[in-house]
Design a protein around this nucleic acid. Structure first.
Lengths: 217, 217
DNA sequence: ACCTGAACACCGTTCAAGT
DNA sequence: ACCTGAACACCGTTCAAGT
């Protein structure tokens, strides 16, 4: 039984198994993963020399692979941005616990380069200045990451201890609860970002190189 | 020596010790913390019954205590928002490794309620609709959390593998590197959010209850 | 190459025992 | 109340040994 005729393990099965445990328990251990896969821990190490950290990286790549920036290839950037953002959110809401394990380290995977390439190309075509494109992408993604983390957070609860909390209490009363809370925050944020980026783009267009055809100056 | 005449330990010293280890190593263990404090592990547990999780929560409270929303008490919201955001960033850049340990769980501390109260009151005074205030606060904070996580991330490196990466490469070449990268992304994002929130506010003012005094309607 | 079985250092937590 | 010392179950990782 030391070398079975049919492969018991490969990196894909290990990744999926770890993701199953994360979805079930919110975390995973190497012995737990091996048990889940019906093998010994040392067998897992044979396929994943980097150990637990590498398993987490593999899960990270698998989850973020569903992030899709291709909307920038065929839509105006104002429409593509929320599509990109929603695919980001969807990738992590499909594995609500995973974000807490994955968000703390940036993804360093070729498949994400394709996403950034589409977004950068779209923004460049729209006329965003070269030296701000990475900043725009990063700002949007920072908002997405924070939003994904926030999706798993419980509602804020405030006991009206101090008198100064009246406004906060009124706002909390008027705000949606449960699942709608995080969704509204995402919608409000992405709309604000798009509006703000549009202003930035208009300013640059007025002051700079690429004059609007209808411009008399 | 079982009960020293002078206290060796208290919750504050434990919190500070843990933060020192996090700043030094990026993480901490309970035995390591005890060693750092010159006591036995079980002594730490006497002061912190909740164990490691509670220590992390104590560190979280201590770090986030430096977040300050009081700018909303005496400044227009457009100026107060970046001040709040920068205090948030500063709290975590003072402990760069801490964010990775702390961001994955929301803070549930009375001192943060005061921050939210100031922000909510300021936004309400400015005329933001009650049912959107929590969403605005959450959206901003999500951006801050993502930005704080991003501060510790290394620069994106792209090897020009595919031809489709030309735009991305141009953007990366034109973007600032090192410390300026995350800072520019934060500035761009916060400016965009303010602009977008202002549009939202104007729309609401035009369509709704609070007419502008100079309005003839 | 692929898997087993046993081992090692270390971690989080507990608890009886001291003052 | 506050701290010690020893213990327990468990984790991440390694390595010689089998086919």
């Amino acid at each position: 039984m030391a070398r079975p005729r049919t492969r018991l393990l490969d990196r894909d099965r290990i990744t999926i198994g770890a993701l199953e445990l994360i979805d079930r328990d919110g975390d995973f251990t190497m012995p737990g993963l091996a048990r889940h896969l019906g093998v010994q821990v040392s067998s897992v190490y044979h396929h994943v020399p980097g150990g637990r950290n590498e398993v987490i990286e593999m899960v990270r790549v698998r989850v973020t692979n569903r992030v899709d920036g291709s909307a920038f290839d065929h839509l105006p950037w104002e429409e593509a941005l929320p599509v990109w953002g929603r695919s980001f959110l969807a990738a992590f809401t499909a594995h609500p616990f995973a974000i807490r394990l994955l968000a703390t380290e940036p993804v360093r995977d070729p498949s994400l380069i394709a996403v950034y390439s589409s977004v950068a190309a779209g923004l460049r075509r729209a006329g965003f200045p070269d030296d701000q494109i990475i900043a725009v992408i990063t700002a949007a993604e920072n908002f997405f990451v924070g939003s994904a983390l926030n999706m798993t957070a419980p509602d804020i609860m405030v006991t009206p201890s101090s008198d100064g909390d009246a406004d906060l209490l009124a706002a909390l009363r008027a705000a949606p609860h449960g699942a709608g809370r995080a969704k509204l925050a995402f919608d409000v944020g992405i709309r604000a970002l798009i509006g703000g980026f549009r202003d930035m783009l208009d300013e640059h267009r007025l002051s700079d190189h690429k004059p609007d055809p209808s411009d008399t100056g």
